[in-house]
């Protein structure tokens, strides 16, 4: 709602767009992702993981952050969503210690449940509402958007066998097709959630997509940043995960949590999950005002930032690390 070029301005705050800016690092490095199974297999796995990350870090920094004084923050994600295990009082010191042995500092620790709901904000629900599936050929706006089936794909599905049988016994099978296939398709269909007993459980790839968006500083709730890191100064950690803030700042001198780009070192078993994450992020319409704001800020720092979210993400997959839990 517009004022005038010159002279006396009139405006109403409620009518103005508002987008809070968040402090940004150049690079957010995920040094690990802990599931119950990994924890059960002992600290050696963690040590190996941290040693690998420490070895990769200089290369990633050289590729993804500007030369000179780059702002790099590290983060660690603990699963308290699918399977709760141990207690922060036990887990956090162990993580911090194992990282220190490898010369790493964990700046931020996040609880995976924060990707679903953090401080009462339904973050996963907000992201789900921003998903726009790629159009079928011929989609001209007249068909309503697809029902909320809880699935999202990167192409046209093969017709369901039940429907085909009902139509004709001889109906030819039609293959699925990836929209941007290069001759041959790699069709992916991702389950976003399931509902049971009136409760929605978000899938592991969906929460991982939210996690990327949080690290990239791309989520806002009515213009406000939804998840601010909170320091934890007391030295001892609680017995219950719920007593720990959703995103804890472990290192008081850390660079900002959110970053223009992300780098994650993950076990090879995560490859399909991260492929699904990319399909989901490719179908998530980030608020244009947020993309514009980051474009301005990065340009002011002489950093070139691709507009596509998936182009801001880098991974290394390593065999022989913690297997990761299956959700």
């Amino acid at each position: 709602m517009t004022g005038h070029d010159r002279g006396l301005w009139y405006s109403e705050t409620s009518a103005e767009p508002r987008t809070e800016s968040v402090p940004m690092s150049h690079l957010s490095v995920e040094v690990g992702h802990l599931y119950r199974e990994d924890f059960a297999s002992g600290p050696d796995v963690l040590r190996r993981q941290f040693r690998s990350v420490a070895a990769m870090l200089p290369a990633a920094a050289a590729v993804l952050s500007p030369p000179g004084r780059s702002r790099i923050s590290t983060c660690f994600l603990v699963d308290d969503y699918f399977h709760r295990f141990a207690a922060p009082a036990e887990v956090v010191p162990l993580l911090v210690g194992a990282a220190a042995e490898a010369g790493l500092t964990i700046d931020y620790l996040a609880r995976e449940s924060a990707c679903a709901v953090a401080d009462g904000r339904p973050i996963a629900g907000m992201v789900a509402a921003r998903m726009v599936a790629p159009p079928e050929e011929g989609g001209n706006g007249s068909r309503p958007p697809p029902q909320e089936s809880g699935w999202l794909s990167n192409g046209t599905r093969s017709p369901s066998s039940a429907a085909t049988e009902a139509m004709a016994r001889h109906a030819a099978w039609t293959p699925p097709r990836e929209f941007t296939a290069r001759r041959h398709s790699i069709f992916t269909d991702v389950e976003l959630w399931d509902d049971a007993d009136g409760e929605r459980t978000w899938s592991s790839p969906f929460l991982a997509a939210v996690w990327q968006l949080l690290r990239l500083g791309l989520i806002r709730d009515k213009g406000a940043a939804p998840l601010a890191p909170r320091p934890w100064d007391t030295g001892t950690y609680p017995q219950a995960w719920d007593d720990l803030p959703p995103l804890v700042q472990l290192n008081p001198h850390a660079a900002p949590f959110a970053a223009y780009r992300t780098f994650s070192v993950l076990p090879t078993t995560f490859l399909p999950i991260e492929h699904a994450v990319r399909v989901l992020l490719d179908a998530t319409a980030v608020e244009p005002a947020v993309l514009d704001q980051l474009a301005q800020h990065s340009a002011a720092e002489h950093i070139s930032l691709p507009r596509e979210v998936t182009a801001r993400i880098m991974y290394t997959f390593l065999p022989g690390l913690a297997d990761g839990g299956s959700a």
């Binding site: 941007t180 992020l281 490719d282 319409a285 980030v286 993309l291 596509e308």
Partner: peptide
């Protein structure tokens, strides 16, 4: 035609 993410980075 580009990957769908290209279009969602240019909404509208």
């Amino acid at each position: 035609r580009r990957p769908w993410g290209h279009y969602l980075a240019r909404l509208g």
